[in-house]
Every structure is written in structure tokens, then in C-alpha cells.
Nucleic acid binder design. Structure first.
Lengths: 202, 202, 202, 202
DNA sequence: CATGAATGAGGCTTCATTCAT
DNA sequence: TATGAATGAAGCCTCATTCAT
């Protein structure tokens, strides 16, 4: 176990950060496909091969950026969800949906690039599936908890329900990213949570 | 000067049309960069060398398509603008703005590709500048006409004013193309024309 | 259906031939991995990209060469095999085995490169499997014919038997390629055919 | 002049040994070209920069291994060769040839890599030339000694004769390395020595 | 007018090597 | 002495473009 970062480690970390920061900017500007490693390296003021010291390839570099963005989403998703009444459940659900969609709107430009990248690269597609799974697992455990508390019928299969619920959210997320209908956010939030809480917590 | 199209000319025209039609479809499907000449030629069922008989390069082929699209926009822009009162001016302005933005929304998919292409190619960028100029010149002459009719103060420099006004419109045009906020169209139309007619025709 | 090769077709064929010929020489000299497309193109006195007009990649180019070599082997394998007695069967088997192994010895240098390439490329490995299958299918049908003629017991599963027999031959083929034990050729031929004909045609 | 190895020197020597040992294994496994410094360093459990402390480059590292192997060959070559009769000469020649070729067979795997490396690197080629020269010089002096003893005619130019004789041996050495004809070793030994002793010591 | 053979610039990636710590 | 961060040459491959037929 390292107790301490040597100067060298710090330098490496700094280079990696610079790489990610530069990459984010270039990806944001040019999109996934049109961004070249050369552009990123030039912007980060480092040699061409350096990018490959830190990332196996262009896809992995993008995934690093994608994961940083998704960290914020996970924080919303991982908020405590331990309702004691149906009312409380619906309210918490609304907050989470709103949080999730709001983040998407706030990061719209980058999310557009994410969408392009998912469509462009098998590897990134797989990584996105992992991200989806992480969300779905969190929801699954929330459902199970509610079932134990007798708030949700055991008739619901937690995983399938979670998957369905997650994808409902994701669809609207992409729609907001694609189309700037940010105004209808609150309505979407209301409808989604109504649907979900009616189904499970009625 | 040929007065008459020979059969050969007709054939050539037909080939060119087919090329443009096929290109439009492929560009629409794959975007500008990911479209290859080979794809287009295959779709048009001709040798790919043939494309180069009619268009110097990929960019010029795209420009041909772009110009066809822009024809519709020019028709809106070239509508008679000869208001006799401030009221009339504002009303006509509104119609033109609405017409311009509506066309953008109707051709949104292609306009997205146009945007990509502008960002991707110097040549296309220059062509877009020409298109902008054409709009701006039209507006300039409208302003001058209104100045002659004493509807607009001679304090306004016609060209600079036209340029400003055009770009205000273009910005919102791209926004509508990027973001599907079609709902807010009427509000944008109202605000833009209010701003412009207040400034000039008050 | 083309009835006739145009001059253009002829030129293309010639280029492809030159490419294959040059590639064969370079592969022979440098082995599979160390051969570069640049070397081949330079030797064939053509531009770099030309190689890619005719072959999707380095592997496919090698496969073309490999297949030409294997044509000779197939000719041996496809020789009529319609024995009427066990004696005749054994004699024909011996001839085929000898023919197969002799070809390997005659093309030893290239077969070494083939071996390297098989170990180096998934694609080429798959192509080699196809080649094996072709041999095995031929043998399978020979066995079935002999079974119909009551020369071979129906207890033998033709395909499995063919596969086993083929691989026995291939193992010795590689050994001869690796090791120059050409002297022992006749002994190997004798042993292999003895084994096989004893098993099936006794 | 250091008379004495400090602990530091000892450590350095140990590191160098480990490097050579690991390198030998990896080169043996992967061949010259496909071996990377990273692989070797990982196997030797040290930073890959360390390899460059001890060896200027990959080629020099390989040369170190090559030289260790060749040490054994030199021992054979440097065995006293002071025949007093033609009979004795032939017998000693046979022993040396046998010794040389036997070592090649015993180290066949590594000798294959040596061959690949010679073909792959100018530097290693040059080093191999040095090794050849060392052999040839030894033979040259043996010939001169025999000439002084009146066993060999002064008509023979010692250097040219030595060079010819050495290369005859080397050719068969590579053949044995390439081809596993170890069985014919004794025959080759007999023929080579017969040829040479007939020519010089008849 | 129509074709497609030929070309090479430019993108991704690997890996030997340098150099500052 | 030991390390590994940083670099760029060189290989593969794609595709716009030229040009001879």
C-alpha cells in the first residue's frame, strides 16, 4: 500500500489530469469521431505517444471522461432511498428523477458527445451498459428494501422492475439532451414519478 | 450559346440529378464526414469516378445540395418588402422571420448535416459565408428602401444593421436545429421582430 | 456474364498478379510478421494504397498466396479414388500421401511462412481451417464411396474417420516442413498408408 | 583499478545477471522481434529503464546473450590443435567439427533466435561477423602452425583457407538448426573433415 | 460522358529509447 | 543505481482524388 504520493506520482497524475481536461475540451468541440489524438496531445502540450501511456486507446480515454461525468449521476442515484410511506416514496422518487434529468440538461453538450460515442464504438457501448447496470442494481436494491418494509408488493420482480424504470428515465434523458425541451422538465418529472409510484407504492 | 438541350445534355443532367438525390440521402443518413463517395456512387448505381465528372470534390457535391436547400430560404428572403407604415413593416418582418425559421425546422435533419459540414470544411464554410452575404445584401437593400421612404432613420448604416439582424436570426435558426424547441418558435418570432421593428420602425 | 476481358480488366489482373508475385517473394524472404505492405508495394513498383485496392488487408493478401499453393495440394487430393480391391486402395492411398507430403517438401520455405502466419493471425487460422475442411470433405466422400462398394465397413463414421486420417497426414507434413527429414519420406508414406489401409481396407 | 567488488558492484552484477537470464527466457519464447523490453523487465521484476542502465539497447542485450552462448563454441574452437601427423590432424578436426555442430544442436532453440536476430538487426549482424572472425583467426593460426610443421603446404593462404573452412562448417550448422536432421550429424562430420583433411593434410 | 485503377495523406496504435529524478 | 514518464518513428488501414482509357 502506498502511503504517500511521490513527486513522480504527482507529476503523472497531473499529466493524466491535463490529458483528460484537454480531451474533454476537444471532444466537446469536435465530437467523438472527429477528435484526433494528435489534437488532444497538441492541446495538452505533450508528445503524441504520451496519451497512450495513460490510456490504451481513444475509446478508453473517452470512457475516463464519461465516467467522471457519470459520477455526478451516481451520486444522485445513490442518495438514501428508505421511504416509510407511499407519500414519502413518491416525493423521494421525484427528487431523484429531477436530479438525474437536471444533470443531463446541465451536461447536455457532453452528453451529446457521449451519445455519439456510444453509437460509434463497441467498447464505449459496453461501458455504457455497465453504467446502466450500476443504476439498475441500485434501483433493484431500493425496490427490495421497500418490499421488505411491505411498501411494495412481492409480486414485482425487483430486477425487471428496476430495469424498466431505469430505461423509462433514460429515454427521457436522451430526449432532453437531444432537444432542449428543458421547459417540460417538471412535467416529465411529475409524469414519470406518478407512473412509477402509482404502480409500486399505491 | 446552346438554345437547346441535346440528348447528351439531358442524359448528363439526369445523371447529375441522380447523384445529388443519392448524395442527399447518404449525407442525411451518415452525416458529412462519414459519408464516402463510394457509398454515394453505389447508391446512384454509377462508377465513383462519375461523381468527379460533375463535382470537383466531395465538398462541391455537398454545396450543390446545400444550395438547393437554401433556395427555399432565399425565396422567403426575397419576398417583396415594401412596407408603407411601421405596423406593416413589423408584420412583414414577422412573416419573414417565421418563414425562415420554419424552413429550418422543416429541414432540420439536413440542416444538422449542413452545420457539421460547415465545421468540417473550409470550402463549405466559405460557401456558407456567401449564402449569408446574399441574405444580408437583401436585407441591406430593404433597409435602404425604407430609409428612402423615411420609414427608417438615416442614422442606421444599412449594411451593418442588416448584418446584425441577419445573425440574430441565424443564431436562433441553429438553436432550433440543434434543439427541437420548435414549440417556442412563435415566441422567438415575436421577440425577434419586436426587437428589430422597435429599433428601426418605431 | 462477361464474355471478354477488357484491356482494363487485363491491366487490373496484371497488377494483382504482380502484387501476389512480389508479396510471395517478400513473405518468403522476411516471413509473415516482418513483411510490410510498404516493402511489397515498393517491390511491385506501385503505390502503397494499391495493395488495398486488391486485398482488404495484409492477411487477405497472404491468404491469396496460401490458396495458390494449396491448389496443388487439392489436385493431389482430388485425384480419382475409386479402388475396387483392398490392394488397389492401399496403392492409391500411398500415392496420395506421397503426393501430399512431397508437395510440402517442395514448397517447404513457403510452408514455413504459412505456419508462422497461421500462428500469427486469427483470420489466416480460420482460412487454414477451411482448407483442412476441404481436404476432409474429399476424404469423407472417398470413404463413403468405398463403403457403398463394400470395401469399407459401415461401422466407420466417414467424417470422423476422414478427420482423423487427415490430421495424421498434416502432422507429418509439418514435421517434414520443420525439419528437413526428407529422407524418411518414403518410410513415413509407407507407415501412414499401412496404418490407414489396414484399418479400413483389411 | 578496482581490486575488489563493493556491495554495490555485486548488486549491479546480480541485476545484470537477472536481466540476461530473463531476457534469454523471453527471447526463447517469443523470438527476437516479438520480444519487448517491457516483457523482459517485467519478468526480471525491475523497471524497464533498468535494462538501459546495463545495455545500450535491445540489440546489445541480445548480443550479451549471444556471446554467452558462443563462449561454449569458442571453447571447442580453442582446443589445442597441434597435430604431428595427417592422421592426428584429421582425427582432431573431426572432434572439433563434431563439437561445434553438437553445440548448435544442443542450443538449437536459441540458435534459431540468433538467426532471426542476425537477419533483423545490422548491429547483431556485425557482432556475428566478429564472432566469425574470431573463429577464423583461430583456424588461421592453426593452419600456420601446421605449415610451420611442414604438415600443410605453404601454397595455401592461411586466412582464405580458414575463412572457407569456417563457412563450410557454419552452413551445415545453420542447416542443423533449421531442420532437425540431427541424425545425419555423424555423416556430416565425416564428410566435412574428410574434405578438409584431404585438401590440407593429405 | 463514364469508369475504376492507382495513389498518398492522415488517423490509430505499438514500442524502443531518452532523460530527469 | 533504478525508475518510469515522455517521445516519435514506423506499421496498418481508409478514403478522397487524379488520370488514362
Amino acid at each position: 500500500m502506498k502511503e504517500h504520493l511521490t513527486n513522480r506520482d504527482k507529476q503523472a497524475l497531473k499529466t493524466k489530469r491535463k490529458l483528460i481536461t484537454s480531451a474533454r475540451q476537444i471532444f466537446l468541440q469536435n465530437g467523438f469521431d472527429k477528435t484526433t489524438i494528435t489534437q488532444i496531445a497538441k492541446h495538452a502540450q505533450m508528445g503524441y505517444g504520451t496519451a497512450y501511456v495513460y490510456f490504451k486507446n481513444k475509446h478508453k480515454l473517452f470512457i475516463a471522461i464519461m465516467e467522471e461525468i457519470m459520477q455526478q449521476f451516481f451520486q444522485v442515484a445513490e442518495q438514501e432511498f428508505r421511504p416509510t410511506t407511499a407519500e414519502e416514496a413518491k416525493s423521494q422518487i421525484k427528487d431523484q428523477v429531477r436530479g438525474y434529468l437536471t444533470l443531463a440538461i446541465e451536461n447536455k453538450s457532453m452528453m451529446k458527445v457521449v451519445k455519439e460515442a456510444i453509437g460509434s464504438s463497441e467498447t464505449i457501448q459496453l461501458e455504457w451498459n455497465n453504467i446502466q447496470d450500476k443504476f439498475i442494481k441500485g434501483i433493484t436494491s431500493d425496490i427490495q428494501h421497500s418490499q421488505n418494509k411491505q411498501l411494495v408488493s412481492h409480486d414485482f420482480d425487483p430486477y425487471i422492475t428496476a430495469k424498466s424504470w431505469y430505461h423509462m428515465n433514460e429515454i427521457f434523458m436522451w430526449q432532453l439532451v437531444d432537444t432542449n425541451e428543458s421547459d417540460s422538465l417538471e412535467q416529465i418529472v411529475e409524469q414519470l414519478s406518478l407512473f412509477y409510484s402509482s404502480a409500486l407504492y399505491s
